[in-house]
Amino acid sequence: MLSCKDATRMCSEALDRPLGLRERLTLRMHLMMCSGCTNYHEQMVWLRRISSTYAGGAFADPTAPDKSDTATKPPPPADET
């Protein structure tokens, strides 16, 4: 059986490349039995949303008056350059 360390590595790689069928099945089996890795797996998706929200400038400067509503949507591709 897949170890948790290997399972987390697979959860991470799934964000960077498509996993093969065999990898997906092994990972799914592991996640069914492991709440820690299931949380990890969900949180990888959150981490991506947090990062892209941050990259969209949604982090608030304490003095900034702009209370934008951009937090939940990914930033649009900028094509101005």
Binding site: G56, G57, S68, T70, P75, A78, E80, T81
Partner: peptide, 19 residues
């Protein structure tokens, strides 16, 4: 755009950083 100005400007900034 319908995104906040800040989001748009940060998009430009990200492109500059990548350049």
């Amino acid at each position: 755009g319908d995104a906040a100005l800040k989001t748009w400007v940060f998009g430009i900034l990200r492109n500059k950083i990548v350049d």
